[in-house]
Structure formats: C-alpha cells, structure tokens
Design a protein around this nucleic acid. Sequence first.
DNA 1: TAGCCTCCAATTGTCCAACAATCGAACAAA
DNA 2: TTTGTTCGATTGTTGGACAATTGGAGGCTA
Lengths: 289, 289
Amino acid sequence: MPRNADQHGAVADAARPNSVGAPQDAGRAGPEPRFAKLGLAPAYRVVFETIEEEILSGRLKPGERLPSETSLADQLGVNRSTAREGLRLLEETGLVRREEGRRLFAAIPRQEDLSSRASRALVLQHVTFRELWEVLMVTEPGVAALAAERIRADQVAALEDNLARTEDAVRNGRGFTQLDMEFHALIAEAAGNRAWLLAREPAALLLFPAMDHMAPHLPQSGLRLVEAHGQVLAALKAGKADVASDWMRKHIADFRRGYNMAGIDIDLPVGRLENPADESKSAAKRRSS
Amino acid sequence: MPRNADQHGAVADAARPNSVGAPQDAGRAGPEPRFAKLGLAPAYRVVFETIEEEILSGRLKPGERLPSETSLADQLGVNRSTAREGLRLLEETGLVRREEGRRLFAAIPRQEDLSSRASRALVLQHVTFRELWEVLMVTEPGVAALAAERIRADQVAALEDNLARTEDAVRNGRGFTQLDMEFHALIAEAAGNRAWLLAREPAALLLFPAMDHMAPHLPQSGLRLVEAHGQVLAALKAGKADVASDWMRKHIADFRRGYNMAGIDIDLPVGRLENPADESKSAAKRRSS
DNA sequence: TAGCCTCCAATTGTCCAACAATCGAACAAA
DNA sequence: TTTGTTCGATTGTTGGACAATTGGAGGCTA
C-alpha cells in the first residue's frame, strides 16, 4: 500500500498524521531478533485511532455529531472511501453509532454490545459449562450482597413482578429461562455498579439459557428456582446482605446439581446462544440470512 | 442508498444474500402507515453478518484464510469497496485478523482486545474507583481460591519470580504497579478458567494502575503489598484455597485503605489508562498520534 | 402566525476503474 | 545456500459518479 504515495493524488500529505517515512519492513524471518519490527498502520486505521482519541480525550463528546464523511475525509487528508473504512472500525467499537437515520454520533459503547461480543468470544473458545458456573458461583452472591444494601423501591417492585410472572410460568409449564435471566439482571442492576454489570453479564448470557436443556428432565427445577428467587428477594427487601448472598449461592449451586441430575456433562463446551431474546432492537435493525 | 439498485451495475443480483425483494421502500409518500418498517441494513453490514455467521457456525474455522477481497466481493455480489467496509467491521470485532503481512484470517477475538475495549467503555462511563474495587474485592479472592486447587509448578515458578522482582523493585524504590498487575494476572491464569479471565480483567486493568497515584504518599505500601503477595503465594503452593482467598481479600481491602490514607476520593471516576504497559504489541502495531 | 407542502442542497450507500506498493512463489545468478 | 530478479495476485488508496434520503429553507394556505 502506498503509504505516502498520493498517487494521482492531490491530497495534502502534510495533513496526514503518522505519515512516517520509515523503512519498509526490515525483512520477515530474520534469525536475529535484532530489530523490533516497526509497524506501519494503514491509513484507515490511523483515521480510526485519530477519531477514537478525539472521543476518548473528551474533545468529541458522546452524543455529538461527527462531521460528514466528505468533510472528515477532507480534514484528515484521505479519500472518502478510506475515511469510511475508519468509520466502520469505530462503528463496530461502539464509539460511533447512527441513531435513527444516518447521521453519525459519538457514543459510549453499550453494555449489551460488549457483553454479547464477549459471550461470542467465550463460545468460540469452547468455554465449558463448568467455567461459566464457577464465575457465576462467585459473582452472583457478590452482586446480591451489594444489591441488598442499595436496592431501591422501584427495583424491588420490578423483582416482585418478575417473581410473580415466573411463578405463573412455572405453574403453567411454560419456559422460564428468560424470566430467570431477567431476575438476575435486575439484581445486578440494583447493585448499582456498572463494572459488575460488565463482569458478570457475558457468563450469565451463556449459562442461564443452558437451563433450557435441563429443565425438561427435571420437573422440580421450576419450583426450586421460584423458591430460591423468593428467598433472595425477601433478603434483599430486608436488607440482609449475607442472607441474600447465601441463598444466591445455593441457587447457583443448585443449577449445577440440576445439570448433573439431568445427566449433562459439566465439562462440555457451551453452545451458541440460541435466542438472545432481543427481538426488541435486533429484529428492527437487521434481517438475518 | 440504492438498496438493490445495481445502478450502472452488472453485479449479479441473485448472488447477493439478503437481496430482499422488498418494495424499494414502500415509497416515501405512502399516506398509509400500513406496514411496519422493515429494517434494511446497509450492504456492508450484511457482508459483515454473513461472514460472521460463517465463522460462528464453524464453517469457516479460526486460522483459515479468507478469500481475497475481489473474490469475496464477487461471491457476495457487492463492490470491493463495500466488501472492504464489511471486513473492517469484522476486523474490529476480532473475528478476522491479519497475521504478519496482509492476508486475512478468521480468528477468535483475543482476550486482551475484549478487555481493553471493555475498560475503555468503563472509563467513558466514568466508573468510579469504588465500583472497580467492589468488583475486584470479590473476584480476586474467588480466583485465588480456584488457583489454589489447580496451579501448576511452572505457574508457581512464574509467581515466585514475579515476587522476587517485586521485592527488588520495592527495595530500590522503583515502581511496582506493573509487577502487581502481572502477579494478579498470573493467578487468574492459574485458575484455569477463561471466563474468569474475561470477567476480572477489565476492572483489573483500571484499578491497579491507579496505585501509581497513591504509592508516593504511602512509603509503607510497597512492603505491605509484598507481604500480601507472599502470603497468597504461600497459600497457593500449599493448596490452601481458603487461606489464599482470605489473604487476597485483605490485600484488595488494603488497596482501598491506601487510597483513603492518601486522601484520594474513592468515588472519583477513574481516568484513562495512562500506560497499559503493552509496548510489546502496541508499539509494534501502531504508531500513535 | 402556525401549519403544510415543495424543492434543493447535503449526506450516505454503492459502484467503477485505476494505480502504487507488497507479497509470494518461481527461477536465475553467485 | 544465499541473494537477486521477475511477474502475477492482493491490499491500500484515490477519484469520480449516481441513487435514495434527509433536513431545511422558502413559499403558500388557513
């Protein structure tokens, strides 16, 4: 790639950041690790990094409109196509997003995006049920303890509503996986800690749906789940952090027991997310293959 | 944008996935809001999703080469520019990577990339020191307990080496933040749980470097840290999960105490990562502004 | 003046066609 | 075996176009 080539070019080379006039590459397989291999980044990546830095540094605040592609390309001294490639990079990072319509905004990456991408990575790594379970075995009680100290009335109400719906679903033999996930997510939210949200969600997103595979084998599981949720909720309402934490631990432990009883191997890698339950935005935004 | 326009076009429309034969757009002036607006994704996004699906489903295995851009564009029935935009999306997701050289490979997203992106998001959300601390207060002891049961000899050796270097750094008044991070990372690795790695790293990446701000105020902090690390390591070697966990808890708790004593507000948002200490790849791969 | 409709400039999505710099592999020379 | 040389394939970048939408600025009615 013509680093500084400006072939037919009229584009102002001076405006191009990082137009390092560095030696091409130092040769590939040098048996002597004498020189550090100097990395030359393609222009589209430089575009990405430049704008990224602009946002990270706060000079470009979330919510603010980005300049038009043409103007951007102009300012950076690259072609619009190149600028667009940089924008795609930003788009996927979540640092730039298009609201409804086309205009691009600077933005903060959304939790859901981060989590779902992390989940995908875990799946691709063939992470096992056991690994996920070990994580949640620690995080969920921890989060519950925090939530007990901070939960607000409206959040209690949301949990009560969730519990009622779960009871109903269980009584009528309907699936309750989604409701279970919602319950745990609500508690995590009640913990009022964004870092926790991010830490637990990828594992939660993968482990809980796995329940669908075991529930059919265990008629009791629904009742046990409702009982546990009820106890946790009660403890939260009473502000008893240790009790909430304890019940949560039992609840998650139960999860594993369920798996064992259903005869499923704990050390099997988890599969792909079947139905991430996001008909909300997903269906509107993209059409699948 | 000409969804299916193929304007001057010669490109095989049939080959185009998702060439939904939807009415151009229901015509703008349709006085009847009869149909729900069906979300049309730009072609470059369809390209992205198509290839993503190919990888996620395992039809395209990690490590495998992708077809050339021209051929790809050809197969998908879009222009090379458009295909490239899709590739940028994939590139940033980490599902596609360029080894050394240019050819693109299918790949699994790297832990580091996921973590650093997550960290950035936390910073942009102005997450506070307290939030991070609350997370690590739970995760680190949990991870240590697991590590006690699984740690291998070579991992013990690595920790011992790290401890020795830390002692040296402390004794000679050098910075030891990097070594501290390494110590914790090694333990996380010893826990042999990839989901844990992902869960704790974003917070760790942000919290530990913050020590740089407090160490200067606390002459003792280095010694306390070495003592704690030593105790944890001893417990790990002895396979005493609960002891390791306990010492780790104290260690992290100490962290906060240090902050208090240094007179730093716990509820202040953490700043940007100053020096993520990755001269290894960072310096080689990109040149900064 | 508020409300509505029309027309136009600005912007995004795609596409085409080239060219420069490399990479890679094949082959020749030292 | 190491070092050049050559040539085709591939990536990085650029210019230039055109269709479909958007967002307003005006202008026209109540």
